[in-house]
């Protein structure tokens, strides 16, 4: 009781000081938190939330380049359901994403395991592995364009020189070869991300676990299957989610290499959306194609989140 009275006495001299509204806004901790967040929030709203919301809005309109357009509800989506090119693009995107992701994962994981072993010039090799990731996509795509060119392809030239083939391979002109080529280029570019991230994960596995397993009698494969892989699943989940998202939304590589051709064989949802909206001027329809990617992406995130990321052994202490 006496303590409370003392406290009241102590605060009394401060009451005559009138704090301005500005003082309240700048001094209050909660307001300070808002001030600090404001630049980031403004940035996110301006460059992420607004374009996304505007894109979703456009997909419900028949907006064209130069005409404001009107709200047509699900019109664009209903129309796209019957559009064979859109269906092809969706299938292409799924095949492209699945194919590229599987190859990237397997090769990237293998590389990570190799790089985790004692190697001479390890730092140099790691730097080299990162190269495809560092080179701008457009540049590496142009390099692939030359490598896969119907007339000047270095692959065709080499195979011809050693006498395995007698005419150039039309990498980007044949439907299946074009699909395989863009997947290959995407895999080449995407491996470093997976390899380096999984390598970081591998290095968090204590060596003593492998030593214990060695004494327990585990073979190399058993160590991978029973220790390395389960211990890396959380990291794999995150890495593969990102990888799938990047791959699903791939645009640059395809656009430089094939522009979706031949005959829409390599058209992905991203490239089709660009063709329809920007080149064709059908902003509403293009937006609808782009928005149609969202459920797939959310699905990928859900699978990784619920299926892989949170393993029981990592969860909090529930003694």
């Amino acid at each position: 009781m006496s303590l409370i009275m003392n406290a009241q006495v102590a605060t009394k001299p401060e009451t005559p000081v009138r704090r301005s509204r500005w003082m309240a806004l700048s001094g209050n901790r909660n307001w300070q938190a808002i001030w600090f967040m404001l630049p980031a929030v403004a940035f996110l709203i301006l460059f992420l939330a607004y374009p996304l919301a505007y894109g979703v809005w456009l997909s419900f309109t028949d907006t064209r380049m130069g005409s404001p357009g009107e709200f047509i509800g699900l019109g664009n989506y209903i129309w796209l359901m019957d559009d064979p090119v859109f269906i092809i693009a969706v299938m292409n995107t799924l095949i492209f994403t699945a194919g590229a992701s599987i190859f990237k994962f397997v090769i990237g994981f293998y590389l990570a395991i190799l790089l985790n072993k004692r190697l001479p010039f390890k730092a140099l090799i790691r730097a080299v592995v990162l190269l495809p990731w560092i080179v701008p996509t457009a540049l590496s795509a142009i390099a692939f364009w030359w490598i896969l060119d119907s007339q000047f392809s270095v692959i065709s030239w080499s195979l011809k020189s050693i006498g395995l083939i007698d005419h150039n391979i039309n990498f980007l002109g044949d439907r299946d070869l074009a699909r395989a080529s863009v997947i290959f280029a995407n895999v080449w570019r995407g491996i470093p991300f997976i390899a380096i991230t999984l390598l970081a994960g591998l290095q968090t596995v204590p060596v003593s676990l492998y030593e214990a397993a060695t004494i327990d009698g585990a073979s190399s494969w058993q160590m991978f299957r029973r220790i390395t892989y389960p211990m890396l699943t959380p990291i794999i989940a995150v890495v593969m989610t990102f990888s799938v998202l990047f791959t699903f939304t791939e645009f640059q590589l395809i656009w430089v290499l094939t522009r979706g051709g031949p005959a829409n064989a390599t058209d992905l949802m991203a490239t089709l959306s660009y063709q329809r909206a920007i080149l064709g001027g059908q902003l509403g329809e293009g937006s609808a194609i782009a928005v149609a990617m969202i459920p797939f992406l959310l699905g990928a995130i859900m699978i990784s989140w619920f299926g892989l990321q949170r393993q029981k052994w990592q969860q909090g202490n529930d003694q």
């Binding site: 204590p206 003593s208 030593e211 214990a212 004494i215 327990d216 029973r226 211990m231 052994w313």
Partner: peptide, 26 residues
């Protein structure tokens, strides 16, 4: 032989039962 390590070297993703039975399981 069997070895007990300073940091225990238990497999974090396995239950106590699985940890103990790991060598026989292999």
């Amino acid at each position: 032989i069997a070895m007990v390590f300073q940091n225990y070297a238990l497999y974090p993703h396995m239950t106590v039962r699985a940890n103990m039975g790991f060598s026989l399981d292999l």
